[in-house]
Amino acid sequence: MNRYAAFLRGIGPSNPNMRNEKLRGVFEGLGFEKVGSVVSSGNVVFHSDETDTAALESRIQQALRAELGIPGGTLIRSRERLQSLVDADPFPGLTHCRETYLVVTFLREEPASVPEWPSEGRPSAVTVVGYDKAARALLSILDNRDPGTTNFMVWLEKSFGKDITTRTFLTIERTLKKLNS
């Protein structure tokens, strides 16, 4: 049985159709096992015999749209990919805190500009520290003391398109812990 995390784009927990229990219900309705959620922003873990993650992403997104009216995207990463990302310690010596966010942006497709990242228009509050090819994840540090962080998502979408989703590294660690339990 394969263990996966689905990171859903555009989830607003205040929307009744986007609450964790409804999200879990869609996954359970698709026949997945050991479905769970991690924090309230569209992170769902599950087990499945399926191995084609692109097909899983499409199937889940179609069900979310049909059953809950959620138009955002679904990006899936296996437990092994997330474990490798965390084990690589991409933010050595840094701690996620109110002033400094350590963030992971998952991309659906491999970007053409690896390893040279777009810098045009990148907010000064953002430092790109690397790219994890196996997880297709851009790794960045946000300086929340700088008002330029508000432009981070705009810059990401302009640089990599809208088929992405961003989580804090802390959320990735929590998700992995849930997958390993």
Rank of each mutant, 00 (worst) to 15 (best):
Glu116Cys: 01
Ser124Phe: 13
Arg174Asn: 05
Asn144Trp: 13
Pro118Tyr: 07
Asp143Leu: 00
Lys162Thr: 15
Phe160Met: 08
Ile141Trp: 02
Thr149Ile: 12
Ile172Pro: 02
Lys158Asn: 15
Glu157Asn: 15
Arg174Phe: 03
Arg167Val: 00
Arg122Tyr: 12
Ala135Phe: 06
Gly148Cys: 05
Gly161His: 04
Phe169Asp: 07
Ile164Asn: 10
Arg167Ala: 07
Thr149Gln: 07
Thr166Asn: 06
Thr149Asn: 09
Asp163Glu: 11
Ser140Val: 10
Ser113Gln: 12
Trp155Asp: 07
Thr166Gln: 04
Leu142Val: 12
Glu157Tyr: 04
Phe169Gly: 00
Thr150Val: 14
Thr127Tyr: 09
Trp155Arg: 12
Ile172His: 06
Gly161Asp: 08
Asn144Pro: 05
Phe152Gly: 00
Val129Ile: 11
Glu120Lys: 11
Leu138Glu: 01
Met153Cys: 13
Lys162Trp: 08
Asn151Tyr: 15
Gly148Lys: 06
Arg136Ser: 00
Arg174Gln: 13
Pro115Cys: 04
Asp132Arg: 02
Ser119Met: 09
Leu138Trp: 07
Val154Lys: 15
Leu138Asn: 04
Pro123Val: 13
Ser119His: 10
Thr171Gly: 07
Val126Tyr: 09
Thr168Asn: 15
Ala135Ile: 09
Lys158Tyr: 04
Asn144Tyr: 13
Phe160Cys: 10
Glu157Cys: 11
Val114Leu: 05
Arg167Pro: 00
Val114Arg: 00
Ser124Gln: 15
Thr150Lys: 13
Ser140Cys: 12
Arg174Met: 06
Glu120Thr: 10
Pro123Trp: 14
Phe152Val: 10
Tyr131Ser: 05
Thr127Gly: 09
Ile141Ser: 02
Arg167Lys: 01
Ala134Asp: 12
Thr171Tyr: 00
Thr171Gln: 05
Ala135Pro: 03
Phe160Ala: 07
Leu139Phe: 06
Ile141Pro: 05
Thr149Asp: 06
Ser159Met: 06
Thr171Trp: 00
Val128Glu: 00
Ile172Arg: 03
Asp132Pro: 04
Ala135Ser: 12
Val114Ser: 06
Asn151Ser: 14
Tyr131Asn: 08
Gly148Leu: 09
Glu116Gln: 03
Ile164Arg: 05
Leu156Ala: 11
Glu116Leu: 07
Thr165Leu: 01
Ser140Trp: 02
Leu156Thr: 13
Leu156Trp: 05
Ile164Met: 03
Thr171Ile: 08
Lys162Asp: 14
Ile172Phe: 05
Tyr131Ile: 01
Glu116His: 12
Ala135His: 02
Leu156Ser: 11
Leu170Arg: 15
Lys162Phe: 02
Gly161Tyr: 07
Phe152Asn: 12
Asp143Thr: 13
Thr150Glu: 08
Lys162Ala: 13
Glu173Phe: 01
Ala134Leu: 01
Arg145Leu: 10
Phe152Pro: 03
Phe152Ala: 14
Arg167Gly: 01
Pro123Gln: 11
Glu120Tyr: 02
Leu138Pro: 07
Thr149Glu: 04
Ile141Leu: 02
Pro123Ala: 08
Ile141Thr: 13
Asp132Ile: 03
Ser119Glu: 15
Ile172Asn: 06
Arg174Asp: 03
Trp155Tyr: 15
Val126His: 04
Glu116Thr: 01
Pro118Cys: 00
Arg136Val: 01
Ile172Asp: 09
Ser159Gly: 01
Arg145Trp: 09
Leu139Arg: 06
Val126Gly: 01
Ser119Gln: 14
Lys162Met: 10
Thr127Val: 12
Ala125Leu: 10
Val114Pro: 00
Ser159Val: 02
Thr171Val: 04
Ser159Ala: 11
Thr127Lys: 14
Pro118Asp: 01
Val128Asn: 08
Gly161Ala: 08
Phe152Asp: 05
